[in-house]
Design a protein around this nucleic acid. Structure first.
Lengths: 236, 236
DNA sequence: GTCTATATGACGATAGAC
DNA sequence: GTCTATCGTCATATAGAC
């Protein structure tokens, strides 16, 4: 929107590069020590400078968190936009709600568990006094609107039942995604997306969602939630 | 289990009381400043003592977090046991799965949002180097087993479909609950349980759950997810 | 046993020299 | 822009009075 189109001089380019370097190190440290474990001293140490020098680029530690918050949402937003499916409308006729939502959920949850530092910062409130600024919050709102518009589009296409409001469906949907991410990061932070105890529950959870909010006529009768794979002997 | 039955002398009684007082102040401070914002100095200040005196009762700050972690799970476990419904089996014949699970969910989520400090400590990982000890984790396991046994009982009673494993259902159930708690605490920490943007979604979410895992024959045909209450003018 | 007094090192942050 | 020097606060730890 208000992005500067005037060419940046060397001074400003170098400055932005340094800022990005600071943020890169910050994300790395947060991934290792936890979001609240981030320290300016450690950033400076890894960059080969002294802590006070960081104040040239960020007026406070909270400002740094703010930049990280904004960058995290922007990256996640970019990942979801890159996925893009419904907007292209190619799937309109053939695909079913369950498949569309599962693909969307997989992209979202995969990004979250593979970026645990960002995920904690974006979805929880781990930093004592920190509240994101309105500017930093903007891409979060943008992603919310993106998901909402997607659901509304699916409703227009007849894949989501028409007798519920999209915001209503969106609310339940975000609960599902945030539940998977929270449970996985809190209880199995070292498990991969493909083998996680909770990420692997996505097909069932999305099916649960699609059974409720999909169009009854179009939703297939797949009521069985992947019953007892690798059945035990004591299970009859 | 291993609770000491030998009567405690005054010395030990006083010591335990002091420990409880420390924990009370700690919970209060965490609620105000966030879990990672807890400081021994602030606890000592509010108790009218000096910080080093706290080391008489807790060998480190992590030990204090450990005690808080254990106490939080014990309190939540007690709240869920006090609720108690299926164990008493009075509801066996009359009640439906949706109602039983909704009541259970309401007790759980209400406790979590009304004890945000505990909730953050128990469900997230906000403290950089802290990992709960096995002893502190025990009541968490106990609550998990409690919920699992409850689901198994509901399965025996014919309220939960028999073709899925209880652990499977339990996993999806915890995702639902943790999703509501996470979303509510992260996005509306100051909203009450009764008016929260996400806590009020519980009926729909539990219905979604019950539709999938309840016995088809017994689950009523309540497929409509409370459509558009307080309809707007622009909504036709 | 419990307390006060005190020391250490890390942290975020600011002022000012260069 | 980067540095040194410095401040106040924090967790941690030890010494010693009572």
């Amino acid at each position: 929107m208000t992005t500067e189109t005037v060419p940046l001089d060397r001074r400003q380019r170098r400055r932005l590069e340094t800022i990005e370097e600071v943020l890169d190190h910050a994300v790395e440290i947060m991934a290792e020590e936890g979001v609240a474990g981030l320290s300016l001293g450690e950033i400076a140490r890894r960059m080969g400078i002294r802590p006070p020098s960081l104040y040239v680029y960020f007026p406070s530690k909270h400002a740094l968190y703010d930049a990280l918050f904004a960058r995290g949402w922007r990256e996640l937003l970019a990942a979801m936009r890159a996925h893009d499916d419904v907007a292209q409308s190619e799937q309109a006729g053939g695909a079913e709600l369950n498949d569309l939502m599962l693909r969307y959920a997989r992209v979202f949850v995969r990004w979250a568990v593979e970026h645990p530092a960002y995920a904690q910062l974006l979805f929880w409130r781990p930093v004592p006094g920190f509240r994101p600024s309105d500017e930093a919050y903007a891409p979060a709102v943008e992603l919310y609107d993106f998901g909402l518009a997607r659901l509304a589009r699916l409703q227009e296409l007849g894949l989501v039942r028409p007798d519920v409001e999209a915001v209503h469906v969106q609310r339940d949907w975000t609960v599902l995604l945030s539940g998977v991410v929270s449970q996985q990061l809190a209880n199995g932070p070292d498990e991969s997306f493909d083998t996680g105890r909770f990420t692997t529950a996505l097909p069932d959870l999305v099916a649960m969602f699609a059974d409720r909010y999909g169009q009854p006529t179009r939703t297939r009768a797949s009521r069985k939630p992947t019953p007892s794979r690798r059945g035990h002997a004591d299970q009859r």
